[in-house]
Amino acid sequence: MTNPVIFDGHNDVLLKLHRAGGLAASESFFSGRKGAIDMPSAVAGGFGGGFFAVYVPSPTDLDFKFEEMSKASYDLPLPEPIDWEDAFPVVMAQAAVLFDLEKRGALKVCRTAADLRATLGSGKMAAIFHIEGAEAIDAELNTLEVLYQAGLRSIGPVWSRPTIFGHGVPFRYPSTADIGPGLTDHGLRLVKRCDELGIMVDLSHLNEAGFWDVARHSTKPLVATHSNAHAICPHSRNLTDKQLAAIRESDGMVGLNFAVAFLRDDGRMLAEVPLEQMLRHLDHLIEHLGEDRVGLGSDYDGAIVPEALTSCAGLPQLRQAMTNHGYNDALMTKLCHGNWMRVLEKTWGQ
């Protein structure tokens, strides 16, 4: 099953290409690379595009992180902040990879809902330029204005570390997200300006206080691009039913995160996750948000995902599981891409 085509809420392929050599690594996107997303895998899996994240990594020992997260409980400290001077060149380099892929015909950077509708299913991936963690945005927001002109249409004020805009969410299980202060005054100004420009504010890495700050100050739908249900997996990164109610009230949406630590009941970073567990989260999200406010947000190339879905070439298995579970054609279309089209049109106003 390669239909309906899937538009996805989050991937980190630009970081992987950046680490593999930047522009020199772009060729591997066409011929097949060691990763979750490339052109051959996208064709095989019916992957039509999504939010392509630009992300500045922290100097983290990934082996240690994943070892800790495989335990029954864990609490990893927030990484240290990253200065604008260090973040900005990394963001520019990853954005250059995105635009190189566009120039070479792999994708189209979509700036409007009309762009998305025209590109999805066209043979090119429909890509949204997204920044995960706003370290490269200065306090005066000058960088934001320039990046918007370049095509930026979605931003997360924080990743799992503090910025001048707010406080991140540590990798902690079990935990609520009520674990610190929310947005700063700079963060509130960022939200306001994003609303004015038509840049979607992503809630996925905000703690609970930051979530409610956005809910109070934004005039746009509340959107978490890659988050799951806290009622099933009580991880600090997941959303409570109260938060889901606020997202529903705003007519926003949530993209189901494939990262196994946010799917499993026990919060462990272990890949043995049956597709039925993903369906439990989807059912819960649909129950609390409604059929029009749930999609997919894989976190491909940025997380350990279920064994059946290690590449987007495996997405037909997820579609089949969803169909076998009883999701009809109309709901499948909404979950696979229709709901993203709806909320982005409402957010961007185009």
Rank of each mutant, 00 (worst) to 15 (best):
H226K: 05
R33P: 04
R319D: 00
L318Y: 00
P57A: 00
A231H: 08
G182Q: 11
L335G: 13
H230F: 03
S31E: 06
L239Y: 09
A53H: 12
L239N: 07
R264N: 06
D241S: 12
H205G: 11
S73Q: 15
Q320C: 01
E291C: 06
G46F: 11
P170I: 02
S175A: 09
P274I: 00
A330P: 01
G314F: 00
V90M: 06
F29N: 04
D12K: 08
L315P: 00
Y148C: 12
G22V: 10
A114Q: 04
M341N: 01
H18S: 03
T347K: 08
L15F: 05
S175P: 05
H186L: 13
D38C: 08
F171C: 07
V191H: 10
G9F: 14
L239H: 11
F165V: 12
K103M: 10
D38S: 09
L296E: 14
P157M: 11
I128T: 10
R193H: 14
G180F: 08
I304Y: 11
H325A: 00
R193G: 06
T347P: 05
D265Y: 08
D115E: 01
R268M: 15
L203H: 08
E208Y: 07
L275K: 01
V254A: 11
A20F: 01
F262C: 07
F47L: 06
E67K: 14
G255I: 02
G349D: 04
R172P: 01
I179H: 02
F52C: 12
R319F: 00
A127E: 09
L318I: 00
I131T: 08
S154M: 08
S26Y: 01
A126R: 04
K242E: 15
H325V: 00
P4K: 03
M332G: 09
D12C: 05
D178H: 13
P170Y: 05
A87M: 05
S227A: 00
V43G: 12
R268L: 08
H18Y: 09
A271G: 14
W348N: 07
H230I: 01
E345I: 00
V169R: 02
L147P: 05
H205V: 07
G166C: 11
